[in-house]
Design a protein around this nucleic acid. Structure first.
Lengths: 339, 339
DNA sequence: GTTGGCACTCTCGGCCTTAGAGTGCTAATA
DNA sequence: TATTAGCACTCTAAGGCCGAGAGTGCCAAC
């Protein structure tokens, strides 16, 4: 436990460093905030904070820099999460309403809005329900022996795939097959389709199997589909002046791996999770912090969003913003897809 | 017109500089290639080349660097475009066949393969036909007064949109509407739907209008939908050691603007186009070269691909590779969608 | 037309120096 | 006992200087 004064000091150091990116010295902080102590006293306190692991020294004659533990304590006990100012909320809401009807479009927009609001990179995953349910399927011939299979799942999700048949199939047959399968499998889950005992022709079975495969893939997919925005924000920050760090950062943010690096799977089903620096399991993330939140309908369609940036991050603002955007997304999901 | 010797020299300078990124000096080049002249002679020749604008000097005592005009002459008259080695072709073909059935997936893959092959950034646009034709539409209710409109166009393109109705509509009604519209509008283009005189209920008209809008948007969309890969390749190059250049580059490559910067619209309908440095109309592209090629079926579904990198680029290899990948893509399109 | 020679130029890396900011310790003070 | 002034010490960042190396342009000789 920290003494009141040390806690205040830690808070000041963190706020100062987050703003300036420059290690903060005893004298500078006393002057700037007109503290009622001399720099010598502050130095002594800083020495204690360092001893206890909350801050550290890049080198002997430099100012202090918060450690992961320092940030953690700050997030946990010191900072206060203010509600976002009304204008900011309005701005975000406004940007949101620019979105079109397409799901992908507004998820990407959400990522962009979030990234801009927090001046860091933002990731928003495509929401999905824990177990998708078939609403309707359609087969449209595109060649003699090929057809486009279009599947509509609940929550207005559409999947498509080109199917090849071993032999030519007429559109009439395709229509017959899709009618049959719609009758049998509407409102079923992938598992239920798999277990079905219905007698079917070879072709019907072929299509049903494809449907099942697509649906399981969608269910498994989890947080894989995501939109990333704001890489630029991160690369602009002073910690990336050295260009090799930039490249590492680029690797980290390459869409492919990103969702694997974020602890979406282990996040609690509600509330915001903050991972600071080395708290991240992945080595490459050791210098970054992540603020993640689920969004969506409890028990229903759910997705996740995350802000990624250097550990030197405006935690309170970022957390408030993520919280707000997540609630907005949940609202939108509810309006659109609540069935 | 250049003398034979000057042309050879220019070619050497370009090849050297493209490989090393270091301005090439008279002495170095004579020694490296054991030229049958002294460096003094080469210096004189270089002076002439510079006078004529083919190469330039970063500063008095540095070696020579090709100018845009130099590269242009090289591309036009000096380089020879070799067929890609068999192994390279095989590798590319092999990577291609890893693609799944989904169009988006293999276009993205194409971009990745191309980017890797030429070690630069690559853009591949989603192919589209000049005028899309409706194949089938489907309406699936998702709420009392909302339905998902799924449109299948020729070439297995699927579009979707959530439609809101002023009042609740039953699924039966939706089915009736979609049957009706399918009967009336199947195989029609957006323009034809717009011109239609068929008598329709208000609801039918509402849906038909949405269909028309989506289709026109798809037709207009042109080269807007594109996949970008290989940003990392470009940023790794030595010319980006200074990190502010990196940021500019990032801006340039930001997906949003990219297709606007590439001269897709003005490219000839066949063959490869090369834009070198300041030949690009956009200011931000002044330091980059672009190699673009259309792909697809003549008169039918068409897309474009481009390689973007510093003007210091391996032109012959890049051109061959783009040519080859474009032909592969055309083949694949033909197999899949030729109707 | 080529060439060797030469004076000149410019960059780059290494080295040194200095200013500035910061630390930690100690002894005096309230 | 907590605080403070003072001081010696440390480290970085920035600037200046120097020499090596690579290159150029020019000229006179071949």
């Amino acid at each position: 436990m920290l003494t009141e004064r040390r806690a205040q000091l830690l808070s000041l150091i963190i706020r100062e460093f987050v703003d300036s990116a420059i290690p903060v010295g005893s004298d500078a902080i006393v002057r700037k905030h007109e503290l009622p102590f001399s720099s010598a006293t502050i130095r002594a306190e800083m020495a204690r904070l360092e001893e206890d692991g909350y801050i550290s020294h890049p080198h002997t004659s430099a100012g202090r820099v918060p450690s992961d533990q320092g940030y953690r304590y700050y997030v946990e006990a010191l900072m206060q999460e203010n509600d976002l100012p009304w204008e900011v909320k309005q701005t975000i809401r406004h940007q949101f309403h620019q979105a079109g009807r397409e799901e992908d479009e507004w998820i990407q927009l959400a990522a962009a809005v979030l990234a801009r609001a927090v001046q860091n990179a933002a990731v928003v995953t495509v929401p999905h329900s824990p177990e998708s349910r078939l609403k309707r399927l359609e087969l449209v011939g595109i060649q003699d022996n090929a057809a486009l299979l279009v599947i509509v799942l609940h929550q207005a999700r559409v999947k498509q795939q080109v199917l090849l048949f071993p032999e030519p199939v007429e559109q009439d047959d395709l229509t017959r097959i899709s009618n049959r399968l719609n009758d049998v499998f509407a409102e079923h889950t992938a598992a239920e389709i798999g277990r079905s005992q219905a007698t079917m022709t070879q072709l019907e079975w072929h299509v049903a199997n494809a449907v099942r495969a697509i649906m399981s893939a969608a269910d498994r997919g989890g947080f894989d589909d995501a939109y990333l925005e704001g890489v630029r924000n991160v690369l602009q920050k002073p910690e990336f002046a050295a260009s090799d760090k930039m490249l590492t950062m680029l690797d980290v943010l390459e869409q492919k791996n990103l969702t694997r690096l974020l602890p979406f799977e282990s996040m609690p089903s509600t509330g915001i999770t903050v991972r600071i620096g080395a708290e991240n399991e992945e080595d490459v993330m050791r210098e970054y912090s992540v603020v993640i939140s689920p969004y969506g309908l409890p028990g229903g369609t759910r997705g996740a969003m995350a802000v990624v940036g250097p550990t030197r991050m405006h935690y309170p603002e970022t957390i408030s913003t993520v919280r707000f955007v997540a609630s907005l997304m949940s609202e939108m999901l509810a309006t659109f897809y609540d069935e």
